[in-house]
Simulated scan of single mutants.
Amino acid sequence: MGQRTALYDAHLAADAKIVDFGGWDMPIHYGSQIQEHNVVREDAGMFDVSHMTVVDITGPQATQYLQYLLANDVAKLQEEGKALYSGMLNDKGGVIDDLIVYRADALGGYRVVVNCATREKDLKWMNEQIAKFDATLTEQPQLAMIAVQGPEAIAKAQLAASADHANIIEQLSIFQGLPCGDWFIGRTGYTGEDGLEIMIPADEAPAFWDALLNVGVKPAGLGARDTLRLEAGMNLYGNDMDETITPWQAGMGWTLALKDDREFIGKEALLAEKAAGIEYKLVGLVLETRGVMRSHQKIIFTASDKTGEVTSGTFSPTLQQSIAMARIPADAGNECAVDMRGKAVPVRIVKMPFVRNGQKIFE
C-alpha cells in the first residue's frame, strides 16, 4: 500500500481505478480517460495533485539562495504572487527537477512546488545548497492540492469557493498565486488550459472537492493529465528530461537567464555546451497514419545515419492522431520515421505545443 492523499476516499467513492504513482495510491481514471481529457478541454475537470511537494523559502537571503539554486532568475518576479517555471540543475547542467516558484511576500519569501517522484532527492539537494545562505526551507506536508482546469474552471471554482476565496480567484492574473487564510490559490496548471492549482489544508480538501462536484466539475485522473500535458507540449520529468539532460536538450532554453553576472548551479556547463554546439534538441512529432507512438521508440532519418528517440508518445484525443515528443540530433534533418516493431513509419516534425485552448495550433 502506498501513501494516500486526503482525497483517497473521494476517489474510491467515484469508482476510480487506483495505481501506484511515485509511491502514492492515485487515480489513473474514473472510468474513461478520454472523457476526462475532453471535459478539461471543453468544460472543467479537477485533479488531485496532493502528492506534489510544497516548500516555503524564507529568510534574509531567500532571494539570493533561489538565484543560485535555479537556472531561471527569481529577480524577474516583480509583483506579489507572480510565478516562474525553472529547472533546478546539477553541476553538469542536468535537470534535477523542474518546478514552479511563486513570489510570496505574505508568506515571508517564496513558495516552491516540486514533483512528488523526485521529493527525496530534491529536498536533499535543496537543503545542501541552502546551508550557504541565511535562509530557511520549510516543507508544507499539511497541504493538499487540487488542480481545476478547463475553459469553465475559473467560473466554476468561484461558485464552489467561499466569498473570500472567490475574490482572490477574481484578482489573479495568469501565472500568479496568492494566499487567502490557510489557502494558496495559483492560476497555473499542466494542461494547456486556463485554470487553478489550489493548495488547501488537507482536512478541508474533501469538502471543497465535493463543492466542486456540486457545481459540475468532473474528476480526472493521471491518464488524462498525461495526454493533456503532452498535447500542451509540457515536459514530464523522467521522460523528457532528467539529470543527464540539459535544458538546451529538453526544450527549456527559454527558461535560462544567462545574460547577467548571476552565478547559478550548472551555468558554466550550459555556457560550455552552447559554445561547443548543442548536440540534441526536443521536437514535436505527428503520426499521420494509424498507430501510436510510445516512449523509447527509435527515430531514424532519411539524410543521416544518426538516430533519435521518442521521449513521450500517446494518442491525442483532441487531434484524433498520435503525437509525441522526441529528442533528435540537432543536425539530422527533418525527414524522419519512427521504428514501430521493425517498420519505419513516416512522421512529421512540428513546432510544439500541439494544442492550445482546445485548438490545434501546429501547421
Score class of each variant (00 low, 15 high):
residue 107 L to Y: 15
residue 285 L to T: 09
residue 193 E to K: 08
residue 340 M to D: 10
residue 200 I to K: 04
residue 83 A to H: 02
residue 14 A to N: 09
residue 82 K to N: 04
residue 123 L to R: 00
residue 15 D to P: 05
residue 129 Q to M: 06
residue 284 G to T: 02
residue 230 L to D: 05
residue 228 L to C: 06
residue 82 K to A: 14
residue 245 I to T: 15
residue 146 I to T: 08
residue 347 V to G: 02
residue 274 K to S: 10
residue 102 Y to K: 06
residue 358 G to A: 06
residue 333 G to K: 04
residue 159 L to C: 09
residue 126 M to N: 03
residue 220 A to P: 00
residue 238 G to S: 06
residue 39 V to H: 00
residue 308 G to S: 06
residue 361 I to L: 00
residue 92 K to W: 03
residue 154 I to Y: 11
residue 108 G to I: 01
residue 230 L to W: 02
residue 262 R to Y: 03
residue 314 T to A: 12
residue 328 I to R: 00
residue 330 A to Y: 15
residue 329 P to L: 08
residue 5 T to F: 02
residue 167 N to E: 14
residue 256 L to C: 02
residue 98 D to N: 11
residue 80 E to C: 03
residue 162 S to T: 15
residue 30 Y to N: 15
residue 238 G to Y: 08
residue 353 P to H: 01
residue 125 W to T: 13
residue 84 L to Y: 02
residue 33 Q to L: 14
residue 122 D to S: 05
residue 90 N to Q: 06
residue 41 R to D: 05
residue 195 G to K: 01
residue 159 L to I: 11
residue 216 G to T: 05
residue 26 M to S: 05
residue 57 I to S: 05
residue 90 N to I: 06
residue 355 V to C: 02
residue 210 D to W: 10
residue 125 W to F: 13
residue 226 D to Q: 08
residue 163 A to K: 15
residue 329 P to H: 05
residue 210 D to T: 14
residue 355 V to A: 04
residue 147 A to H: 11
residue 208 F to S: 09
residue 5 T to L: 00
residue 211 A to D: 01
residue 83 A to G: 10
residue 30 Y to S: 14
residue 138 T to K: 12
residue 61 Q to H: 08
residue 220 A to C: 09
residue 5 T to C: 02
residue 73 D to L: 07
residue 141 P to R: 14
residue 101 V to Y: 01
residue 287 L to Y: 05
residue 135 A to M: 01
residue 271 L to M: 10
residue 151 P to E: 07
residue 157 A to S: 11
residue 217 V to L: 02
residue 283 V to N: 12
residue 139 E to Q: 15
residue 341 R to A: 13
residue 309 E to N: 09
residue 185 I to T: 01
residue 74 V to K: 05
residue 43 D to N: 08
residue 135 A to P: 00
residue 363 E to S: 15
residue 113 V to N: 13
residue 202 A to W: 07
residue 332 A to K: 00
residue 180 C to E: 15
residue 174 I to N: 12
residue 216 G to H: 06
residue 88 M to E: 12
residue 324 A to P: 03
residue 156 K to Y: 01
residue 105 D to L: 03
residue 75 A to Y: 08
residue 174 I to K: 03
residue 133 F to R: 08
residue 20 D to L: 04
residue 118 T to F: 13
residue 62 A to C: 03
residue 171 Q to Y: 01
residue 44 A to Y: 03
residue 355 V to Q: 01
residue 337 A to E: 06
residue 153 A to K: 02
residue 305 D to I: 09
residue 346 P to K: 06
residue 214 N to E: 02
residue 180 C to A: 12
residue 218 K to F: 00
residue 28 I to L: 10
residue 210 D to M: 15
residue 305 D to S: 15
residue 360 K to S: 09
